[in-house]
Simulated scan of single mutants.
Amino acid sequence: MMQQSPDVLDNLDLGVPWTTGLFDCFQHPTNAIMTAYLPCVTFGQIAELLDEGEMNCALGSYIYLAMMPALCSHWLMGSKYRAKLRMKYHLVEAPFPDMVFHIYCPCCALAQEFRELNNRGLDPSLGWRQIVEQQMENPPPDQFMAR
């Protein structure tokens, strides 16, 4: 077995850890219950934020719901948006690929994604439009407009 030098390991960029674990569902109990009964709604909320309003919550929910009975193929959309979230925030894909999380534990994966967005200041339950309106009303203090 070939050993890698410390320089190679130091340059390996794995990403940053998630703010919560996969099974920390009850850190946000309202979402945990919603996701357990209506995972399609949680998916729609996540998709709306990650698509920056291009897909609304209702359409995302419908697509996810329609894919559930179709050979249980909802994991395709779930893993696609989990990867999109990971790329956006440079999150680590561990200990399994995104697809595995959405095949074997889709509700836990959706709840973790919801919490990640929420912990980063984007409450998926508000929707894209309301988040943008809030950001326009309350811009970060270190930003200003100049002529």
Rank of each mutant, 00 (worst) to 15 (best):
I63Q: 05
P95C: 01
K80G: 07
V41L: 14
T35R: 10
R147P: 08
M87F: 06
P39Q: 04
H74Y: 00
M34V: 14
V92Y: 04
F26H: 08
L117F: 12
G127L: 02
L22W: 07
Q27S: 15
M145F: 15
C40P: 10
I63P: 07
D98Q: 03
F101I: 02
E48H: 00
A58Y: 01
P140G: 09
L85T: 01
V8G: 02
W75L: 02
L49A: 01
Q45D: 02
Q143A: 15
V8L: 03
A36M: 15
E116Q: 12
M1Y: 05
T42D: 03
C108F: 14
P97M: 13
A111K: 14
I103L: 12
M2I: 08
H90D: 10
E116S: 08
I63L: 11
A47F: 01
M2N: 08
C57S: 05
K84V: 03
P97W: 11
R115S: 10
Q112V: 08
L71I: 05
V41Y: 14
F114Q: 05
P106R: 08
F144M: 15
E133G: 04
D51V: 01
I33F: 11
L14H: 06
A83S: 11
E113S: 14
C108Y: 13
G44M: 02
N31P: 12
P141C: 10
P106G: 13
L122A: 13
E133C: 00
S125I: 08
L22S: 09
Y81F: 14
V16L: 12
P97K: 09
A36S: 15
A32K: 09
C72Q: 02
E137G: 07
F114M: 13
P140A: 15
M68Y: 01
I46S: 01
Y62H: 01
F23R: 13
M99N: 06
R82L: 15
A66T: 04
A83P: 00
P141T: 09
P140I: 12
N56F: 02
L117M: 14
Q130L: 05
N118R: 14
Q45E: 03
T20L: 11
L59I: 12
V41P: 10
I103V: 15
Q135H: 11
N119S: 14
N56D: 15
C57A: 08
R120H: 11
W18R: 12
P69F: 00
L59W: 00
D142N: 13
N11F: 14
A58D: 05
A83D: 07
E52V: 00
A146E: 15
C57V: 04
C40V: 05
A36D: 11
L117K: 04
N11T: 07
Q135V: 06
Y37C: 13
H90L: 05
K88P: 08
E54K: 04
A66G: 04
K80Q: 14
T35L: 10
L14N: 08
F26E: 03
P124C: 02
G21W: 11
M55N: 13
M136G: 11
C40N: 13
P97Q: 09
Q45P: 06
L110D: 06
Y81N: 02
F101T: 02
G21D: 07
S61R: 06
G53N: 06
Q4F: 06
G53Y: 04
Y89C: 03
A32D: 08
Q135T: 05
R129W: 00
S61M: 14
Q135W: 10
E48N: 00
L65M: 08
R86L: 03
N138I: 13
S125R: 07
R120Q: 06
A32E: 09
